[in-house]
């Protein structure tokens, strides 16, 4: 399965919605979209993983790279994810301590607006 990437702006925040699989084949596509969004000047980004069916370390690597990029502009990346199979890889790799993870886009947006 391929990866569908939709980007939108919600209340001034860049939101990327992913659907499908993030692996060595599709991760470069995500990397490229993240770079575009940062280049547009959006440094607080929400990435919605609710429709991601599979993700491996190639996807995690892109998220970490994206985080480094936005942090250099005092920005942040927040994730939306409730699926246990995806949350598990964030726990195993310790990335739960690096990325704030929310159960809905609304919660993530509130967190950015409140900070």
């Amino acid at each position: 399965m391929d990866l569908k990437i939709e980007s939108k702006e919600v209340e001034g925040v860049g939101v990327i919605v992913l659907e499908g699989e993030v692996d060595v084949y599709t991760a470069p596509k995500l990397k490229s979209r993240l770079i575009d969004i940062v280049d547009e000047g959006k440094f607080n980004i929400i990435i919605d993983l609710q429709k991601v069916e599979f993700m491996d370390s190639s996807g995690l690597g892109v998220l970490v790279g994206g985080l480094k990029r936005v942090k250099s502009h005092q920005g942040s990346i927040l994730l939306v994810c409730t699926q246990e199979n995806i949350l598990k890889i964030f726990r195993i790799t310790g990335l739960v301590k690096v990325f704030p993870i929310f159960s809905s886009e609304e919660e993530a947006i509130k967190s950015i607006q409140g900070s």
Binding site: V24, F54, S58, E84, N85
Partner: peptide, 19 residues
């Protein structure tokens, strides 16, 4: 089902390394 997902993930990592 969880174990099958784990196996898929491990194989994906090993194939990525090989590539």
């Amino acid at each position: 089902g969880d174990a099958v997902e784990d196996i898929k993930l491990a194989v994906s990592e090993a194939c990525t390394n090989a590539i």
